[in-house]
Design a protein around this nucleic acid. Structure first.
Lengths: 246, 246
DNA sequence: AGGCGGCATTGATGCAAATCAAGGCGCCGT
DNA sequence: ACGGCGCCTTGATTTGCATCAATGCCGCCT
């Protein structure tokens, strides 16, 4: 079920400049390197459950996971999409507030929770970077509230595709504000629906509608080609300057 | 328009044990005391606008403000409700990402932005407390996504009243899980609607419906009496244990 | 090849909340 | 006391999305 994963040297790590370690100097990195371990989970694996203990503070090295909560009657809402460099867990708390599930094969760089709390106290660049990342996550969560509370189904889908393309571009070191792009969707229609506060059917219909309107192509169910990024961004409700950054 | 506000000694401050200064020792407090200033704003005042410079890092001492964003066509979503001990601004950024408006008379405890950034670097207890508060805010923002994405109008209103009662209780040093409570609503119907992703009309109708069902009383438009807190919490979609903490 | 299971699409219908449209209530100033 | 103004409530109608219900597509197993 779970692969053994060889440890990468921090210097060669693909998320070296984006994760909690981004601001660390060589000396601090050596400390982290001695405390870290890797683990890989297959698609569908549950990395944590709401209310259950969480023994590690982890960073996503590759893959994709969702952070979600399910109401008693089965309604589910994804509250965060975790991509490479995002972290899981929080210093000072021993349980997860949400269900965390791998939607693509996920490799984590992990620290024992108590050990990491000590690192936060003793390694200043970890603490400051963690604060910056948490503030960024807070902004993202608040931006998402606008999507959930006020956008139409069509705008939600367009916004989702646009933000996914932007994050892909950032990971690839590019910026994505115009031209064409091809994306792989890490999420099923159901997971997209849960992320956007929609049903599967509405999600599927709106994707079909965007295709019929020529704003996207769907070579396969999990692949989306955007011929004109700026046009789709407009559909997502952004003014021409791309004022809304999700 | 803006009142001059006498400075309170930190030792007598009503939010001494909840704000960014909560973990500070006497020595650190003296440093903060020498750098702080107070300012009071009337109802309706705009404390910041999305994209505009924000020269201070502030903490709400008393009153209530909303954090919101408005789309070009006028749709507005409130992404955070700021109550005493909550902070405004973020270290390392010179602009506000949201509109911030006083919905009740607000008194702020303010630090010059650059000065505060220095305090975060040099006062360890400020940095750790800020991280803890930001993680709490992130959890609250994610919890709110469940409300916006998956709850019915009735559940949204019930959840809003329940979370307001809980926050009131925390500020008053109590806990609120059962019995009766009377609340003052700091928000107009329009502001509540913006917070919940509803229209004014639906907000008003659902409040009326909860009243007709005996779950609340409304002695005045801005006053809500909850005869049985646990019953309203149930209506908010919580199981009997109050599993969902907003 | 064939059949099965999971995911995605499409269609028909229902319903909760938005929209459109009056009124009502309380508060302020004169 | 009266009129005007904001805010709130209520009613009638529309509509966007959910729900209910098939059907289609693709990969996998035998």
């Amino acid at each position: 079920m779970v692969k053994l994963t060889p440890i990468i040297a921090c210097g060669n790590c693909p998320i070296r400049h984006n994760a909690v370690c981004a601001d660390c100097d060589a000396e601090e990195l050596a400390i982290l390197e001695s405390a870290k371990s890797y683990k890989t989970f297959p698609v569908g694996a549950r990395l944590a459950e709401a209310g259950e203990p969480l023994e590690y503070f982890s960073t996503i090295v590759s893959g994709c996971a969702t952070l979600s909560r399910t109401l008693e009657d089965g309604r589910r809402q994804t509250v965060g999409l975790l991509l490479p460099s995002d972290y899981i867990g929080r210093p000072g708390r021993a349980t997860s507030g949400y269900d965390i599930e791998a939607v693509a094969e996920v490799t984590l760089c992990r620290f024992d929770r108590r050990k990491f709390e000590e690192l936060v106290r003793t390694t200043p660049h970890v603490a400051t970077r963690l604060l910056t990342m948490t503030l960024d996550e807070l902004d993202a969560a608040r931006d998402w509230a606008v999507v959930l509370g006020r956008m139409t189904a069509r705008e939600k889908i367009a916004t989702f595709l646009v933000s996914l393309a932007r994050r892909d571009a950032v990971t690839g070191g590019r910026s994505q504000e115009e031209g064409e792009v091809t994306l792989h969707l890490p999420l099923s229609r159901e997971a997209i629906a849960d992320h956007l506060g929609l049903t599967i059917e509405t999600t599927s219909r709106q994707i079909t509608a965007l295709r019929k309107d020529g704003l996207i192509d769907t070579p396969s169910a999990r692949t989306v080609h955007i011929p004109d990024f700026a046009l789709l961004a407009l559909e997502a409700g952004e003014d021409d300057d791309g004022g809304l950054i999700i």
